[in-house]
Write a protein that binds this DNA or RNA. Structure first.
Ligand SMILES: [Mn+2]
Ligand SMILES: [Mn+2]
Ligand SMILES: [Zn+2]
Ligand SMILES: [Zn+2]
Lengths: 133, 133
DNA sequence: ACAATAATAGTAATGATTACTATAAAGAAT
DNA sequence: ATTCTTTATAGTAATCATTACTATTATTGT
């Protein structure tokens, strides 16, 4: 995999944020520095970087994929109202016992798991309170 | 929500299987009994039944949504090779402690979580062994 | 600098899902 | 049972995220 300016900037910009942007959001971010980059290049590099383990592709909800500049396994919480996705710092190993249990009962060779929490973010909770009054 | 023959058959067929079919797979299943049903009707009813809590919509992987005739919260394991999705019967309450921890540390009002395991199904493990020889 | 080849920009194609609309069916009222 | 109101359907068109294609450009090893 060659080191192109486009690939480099995509990775840099994605690692700057914790907002789990969609491909077109990454495109807008990168365009500030590389105004001539094409959307296809963004898609292709997000795919390649993900396959290379440099970033993560998240299928959190909605129609668009979201991308995470943090390649380490970690958990997320998604707000059901505004769609915001935040990082959690729960220890991943809390689930390792469960992985073993799944392997035993299902016969699967388990290589990992994905866990996300759903709810209302602090901001949207405040909004709800306003409406209740 | 009116009880139409189409809606009824879609729900019945989906509850017959544990295979988590895609919309077009449901379409094929239902067409055996209602040859004139349209794909749009299948999509619309899967959406409505899901919103009504009669079934679940799963965003497991790939481009297509999958549907689950079992509306109760339960976990899944997906095979990375063949895509098969099986049900697990882990107790959901094993994660309730984690939900509380997430609520405290993130400020989210947590209303649920989604957990899936990734790995190789028994059948695909056998295939791998063949290749190793 | 040169050659080999991987990557890009721009554009077209794909494919799952959603929207639209005239017709039909369901359920309530009579 | 008949009529009426409203929701749902079939068939089709439109949408939109993503992928594929291709001529040109950039990277990297020599
Ligand atoms: Mn993250
Ligand atoms: Mn299931
Ligand atoms: Zn929110
Ligand atoms: Zn398999």
């Amino acid at each position: 995999m060659r080191t192109t300016r486009q690939r480099q900037v995509i990775l840099e910009e994605l690692r700057k944020v914790t907002s789990h942007p969609t491909a077109d959001e990454v495109y807008e971010m990168v365009r500030k520095r590389l105004p001539h980059i094409s959307l296809g290049t963004v898609y292709r590099n997000l795919e390649l970087l993900s396959a290379a383990g440099e970033i993560q592709t998240l299928g959190l909800a909605g129609t668009q994929k979201r991308f995470d500049g943090n390649p380490a396994n970690h958990y997320h919480a998604r707000c059901l109202k505004c769609g915001r996705v935040i990082d959690l710092d729960l220890p991943v190993k809390a689930l390792n016992g469960l992985e073993d249990a799944v392997a035993e009962t299902s016969g699967f060779k388990v290589v990992g798991h994905r866990l996300k929490f759903l709810g209302l973010c602090p901001r949207c909770q405040k909004e709800e309170q306003k409406q209740d009054r």
